[in-house]
């Protein structure tokens, strides 16, 4: 452990020194770019800052007219109100939290595996029909979901999946977005010779997928992790879930904030709480993406 850490720190030192050998933009160009990034990031940060600030506003500041962006007397009242509301529910709050975490966790893990596996097959095997399959994957992304909701509901109810976790998980697993993303990375990052070499060594196709392909395209599936988790986390499943015990966290929290003015404070706390898990996943995934980069730089 110690040695590997020491090794890693010397390596990262080397990596930090490396860019000096590379081309760079002129100092003036860099200054302009940095200024541009700084100005834009102020606008881009608005939603994050606003959600945080609002959650700490006392009720009179929430309804201040004219509205003010920043908070002048920060308070924890909103969180206390949210806590009271969630304590008094018929089904314990932890149950909703479990539902959402379970669905997001299991769903995301499954999707990354099945989507990557399909993407590998599409990217690296010239099986009959591969070109058409790929086109259909893209077409499915372009079709608007507003009109497919009803047939989807009929299928799910015919399969007897109403009021089960399946109704929330399976439609998301059926999206072709992740297959497209993974295929684009695999086709680029994995040379066919590498696969053939592994095959010569006696690896099965499944082993090649798991032990050769997946580690190399780690930045891709870590990115897919963000999208998929976010999608599951925002899923309410209101069309399919009527059983109170199986409802998702966003459904319940939206109920709190949709109860009108009286709960505007708790609602703003809810918005912040709901945003935290995707941000945590984002940060974990992005920092791992960076580590992968450090490793692949050593090749």
């Amino acid at each position: 452990m110690e040695t590997s850490r020491a090794l890693r720190s010397t390596l990262s030192l080397k990596l930090r020194l490396l860019p000096r050998k590379k081309l760079s933009r002129s100092r003036k160009e860099n200054a302009v770019i940095f200024l541009f990034l700084a100005i834009c990031s102020v606008f881009m940060a608005l939603p994050l800052v606003y959600t945080i600030v609002t959650a700490f506003k006392p009720i009179n500041e929430l309804f201040l007219f004219p509205p003010r962006f920043f908070v002048s007397h920060p308070t924890l009242d909103n969180f206390i109100a949210m806590n009271q509301l969630t304590q008094n529910m018929w089904v314990p709050f932890s149950r909703y939290l479990f539902n959402s975490v379970f669905v997001a966790g299991v769903g995301t893990a499954f999707y990354i595996v099945i989507a990557s596996m399909a993407a590998f097959a599409l990217a690296k095997y010239k099986f009959p029909g591969h070109a058409l399959y790929f086109q259909i994957i893209v077409w499915a992304i372009l079709f608007r979901p507003e009109v497919t909701g009803i047939p989807q509901y009929i299928i799910i109810s015919k399969l007897g999946m109403v009021n089960t976790y399946f109704a929330v998980i399976l439609p998301v697993l059926a999206g072709s977005f992740g297959v497209f993303l993974m295929r684009q990375f695999i086709i680029n990052a994995i040379p066919t010779e590498m696969i053939e070499a592994a095959r010569m060594d006696g690896a099965t196709e499944y082993r090649i997928f798991w032990a050769v392909v997946m580690p190399i395209v780690k930045p891709a599936w870590l990115t897919l992790l963000i999208f998929t988790f976010q999608q599951f986390w925002n899923t309410t499943g209101v069309q399919y879930i009527y059983n109170e015990n199986l409802k998702m966290l966003p459904t319940i929290l939206q109920q709190i904030s949709s109860a009108g003015l009286a709960r505007a404070g708790a609602g703003s706390a809810v918005a912040l709480v709901l945003m935290i898990p995707p941000i945590v996943i984002f940060l974990i995934s992005q920092s791992s993406v960076m580590q992968t980069m450090a490793h692949s730089g050593l090749k």
Binding site: I114, A115, M117, A118, F120, A121, L122, Y125, K126, F127, P128, H130, Y133, L173, V179, T204, E205, Y206, F209
Partner: peptide, 12 residues
């Protein structure tokens, strides 16, 4: 290409 079809099967 049977392995390729097997890998595609769950998603498909």
């Amino acid at each position: 290409y049977k392995e390729a079809y097997f890998m595609l099967a769950p998603f498909t």
